[in-house]
Design a protein around this nucleic acid. Structure first.
Length: 357
RNA sequence: GCGAGAUUAGCUCAGUUGGUUAGAGCGUCCGGUUGUGGUCCGGAAGGUCAUGGGUUCAAGCCCCAUAUCUCGCC
């Protein structure tokens, strides 16, 4: 259950209650696609202030499979994470794995990226798998097209997304019967950069009454301004008392702007990807490429103001060396740093809101 | 001392029977990455082809000398 506690100039402040504890909003979700963050432990992630973890239906279904997770006692037990979990439906893989899948009216035919096995995901299977995994928040199976696609393709994606949302809702009700704590189900607004399609999609989803609403199909090739325009167009249409989730956005500046526009939750792989490529975010808002020679002899802390203890105690010269030497610890330090900075960005926004309330 | 081999980008090396502007990997620098098929992707800078002669319309490539290095033999 979501409780909005205040609407301030930096954005909406609230609390989300789940069977696995409360989440202070607005918040950012670290992406642990296959049930883990690369190179960092759950404990380390918690120490940075993570409140929830995102896992992926497509990936968990392929490996190890939801039956293994179910027999282990559900995702929380299986991965030993006691805080809330959100599972993404696999709809994004329609976009990210385009070229190796084919879309039809009832769902999407994938080929496993691991061994080529055929795999079909649609509204029923996506909801069934997510229920078996046992997350606190699950997502409708949607059709995510490139934001720059032709209007006809966007229109078709919206129609599919809406039809599938209705089916997801039905199957969700079916799989929830007899459950003490059924998960929350979020609908996903598609519509590319077309304001009228976004509006249509939002309004029809709202009529179906979901527990929260995501804005999908952004951060997939359009400019930041185009993205902001869509957020500006969609947010005012969404019900005040429900969570708004902007999918796939995680650049600090974009987080701040979108929170101000009324978004409550985000997820993004970018901070981790940047970290793995040696691109380090700093607490003062700047960033550095630690592989560059200028850091070879930089015997100063990576980031003295970092929320990650590793970055306060280890030097830039050491991280430069670790990354160049392809040492695992380098990836860990970099990931802790970038995730710490991203989570800290959200914490600071919440603190600023609390001062206003 | 004798013999063989080597010498091309910062490093390790390709370079066809001699034929436009000599290539690659790594390294350097600059970009990119957004609901994870990503130790990834794109671009740039960087060379008197050891030195000096010669043959040829044309030499990194063929010939001679010199230097340096490696290996082997006295």
């Amino acid at each position: 259950m979501f409780t909005l506690t205040g609407t301030t100039s930096p954005g909406r402040r609230g609390v989300l209650s789940t069977p696995h504890g409360e989440i202070q909003t607005p918040f950012f979700m670290p992406v642990g696609t296959a049930g883990a963050m690369r190179g960092i432990t759950h404990e380390d992630l918690l120490s940075l202030g993570a409140q929830i973890l995102l896992c992926n239906t497509y990936h968990m279904h392929l490996q190890p499979g939801e039956e293994i997770v179910r027999e282990a006692g559900g995702l929380h037990e299986f991965i030993h994470w006691s805080k809330p979990i959100l599972t993404d439906s696999g709809g994004y893989q329609v976009f990210s794995l385009r070229g190796s899948n084919s879309i039809e009216d009832h769902g999407v035919h994938f080929r496993s990226h691991i061994n080529g096995d055929p795999l079909f995901l649609g509204p029923e299977s996506a909801i069934r798998i997510q229920h078996a995994l046992g997350a606190d928040i699950i997502m409708c199976f949607d059709h995510c097209p490139p934001s720059t696609a032709a209007r006809a393709e966007i229109e078709q994606a919206v129609d599919r997304t809406l039809r599938w949302a209705q089916e997801c809702k039905t199957w969700h009700r079916e799989y929830s019967t007899g459950k003490e704590n059924p998960p929350m189900l979020f609908g996903i607004v598609q519509g590319g950069l077309e304001p009228d399609l976004r509006k249509k999609c939002a309004e029809e989803l709202i009529a179906m009454d979901f527990d929260g609403y995501a804005i999908g199909g952004l951060a997939v090739g359009e400019s930041p301004q185009e993205m902001y325009d869509v957020v500006d167009a969609v947010c005012p249409l969404l019900p005040e008392e429900k969570l708004r989730y902007l999918m796939g956005v995680g650049v600090a500046d974009q987080l701040k702007k979108c929170v101000a526009k009324g978004v409550d939750m985000f997820d993004c792989v970018l901070p981790m990807r940047l970290a793995r490529h040696g691109h380090i975010l700093l607490a003062d808002g700047t960033d550095i490429r630690i592989r560059n020679t200028e850091y070879k002899s930089a015997h100063i802390p990576i980031d003295p103001l970092s929320p990650s203890a590793l970055s306060r105690t280890h030097t830039r010269s050491y991280l430069h060396h670790l990354v160049r030497a392809n040492e695992r610890l380098g990836e860990t330090i970099a990931c802790m740093q970038n995730m710490g900075i991203t989570l800290q960005t959200m914490q600071r926004m919440r603190a600023a809101m609390d001062e206003e309330i």
